[in-house]
Amino acid sequence: MNGPSPEPGSALDVARVWDARADLYLQLFRHEWDSKPYDRTVLAEFAGRVGEGGRVWDVGCGPCGQVTAMLAEYGLDVLGIDLSPRCIELARREKPGCRFEVRDQQDAGPAVKGDLLDGLVSYYSLHDRPKRELPSTLAAWSAAICPGGQLLIVAKEGTRDGAVKDPLGTEHLVYWADFTEAELRRAVGSAAFHVDDITVREAYAGEIRTRRIYLSASRLARL
């Protein structure tokens, strides 16, 4: 007999939902970056700020692994992580030259004390979890990144914060949290980052019709 369903937006719930929809997502979005020149530029600029060989995590990498692969192409030492074992299985198949691990983005601390990252990218990874978890997530990222290290967050703009019908059209309810520029700026600043830039773009054709926020920040020196 099956037990109770996990709390919406919890780690167990996110892994369960993405395990169930990873194959469909891959089918729909395997080639989406071919038509996203602005986003490719954003990642190239991030890689330039980090520098050749910099150690970076792509959190919430999903089943396609495109962001991880592009960061590797730009010369970074990158690891893609995701809560969903199925997403990681598919990403490894899609991008066999890249590294992927099943891991929670809220567990971004180094395996060895002092072995810090040079940067971290969150491409739509925040919308799967409740807004109340944003401070703890950013605190984990802050602890994982070296002073001067780079943070790139891309999020959908809005005010939703709860379970919704799956935009992919499956029978699942998925957690969905949108953010405003002010929310992201405030939360990132409170986690010992300096916000370097925020830009917003309109949705591309075929995307969910909401604007995208791009926030770049630098890790401040530890006190």
Rank of each mutant, 00 (worst) to 15 (best):
G60Y: 00
D13W: 03
E32D: 13
A72W: 04
P6M: 13
A22I: 11
L43M: 11
V42L: 12
M70W: 00
E7T: 15
Q27P: 01
K95R: 15
G62S: 06
Y25C: 07
L43K: 06
L26T: 12
W57F: 08
L43Y: 08
V17C: 09
E89I: 09
R55P: 08
E52C: 04
E73K: 00
E94F: 06
D82C: 00
R86H: 03
V67C: 01
D13R: 06
R99K: 11
R103P: 09
W33Y: 15
A91I: 01
L90H: 03
T41A: 08
P8K: 14
Y74R: 07
V112G: 02
R103N: 11
L90Q: 07
R30H: 14
G97L: 10
F29V: 00
P6K: 12
S84C: 10
P4T: 13
R21C: 12
G9L: 13
D13I: 09
V56W: 02
D23K: 09
P63M: 10
Y74A: 15
A111H: 12
G48M: 05
P37E: 12
L79Y: 06
S35T: 15
T68V: 13
L12H: 13
G54S: 00
V67M: 03
R49Q: 14
A108F: 05
P8S: 07
I88F: 06
M70V: 00
A47G: 02
L24W: 11
A22G: 00
D82Y: 05
F46H: 02
R16P: 08
D107R: 14
C98W: 00
E32I: 02
V102G: 11
V42Q: 15
P63C: 04
R21Y: 01
E45G: 09
G9S: 13
G60P: 08
A111F: 11
G53P: 08
W18V: 09
R16W: 09
A44Y: 09
G60H: 07
I81M: 10
G109T: 00
V17N: 09
G80R: 03
G53Y: 05
G109E: 14
Q105T: 09
L90G: 04
Y74D: 01
R55N: 04
G62D: 02
Y74E: 08
W33P: 01
V17I: 15
R40F: 04
A69E: 01
V102W: 12
A111C: 11
Y74S: 10
Q27V: 10
S5V: 10
G62V: 12
A15W: 01
R49V: 07
I81S: 11
P6N: 10
C64K: 07
S35L: 04
D23V: 13
I88W: 05
L24P: 05
D34C: 01
D23S: 14
P63Y: 04
G51L: 05
R99L: 05
K95G: 13
G109S: 06
P6I: 11
Q66S: 11
A20C: 02
D13L: 06
T68Y: 01
R99V: 04
D58P: 02
K95F: 00
R40I: 01
R103Q: 14
D107W: 10
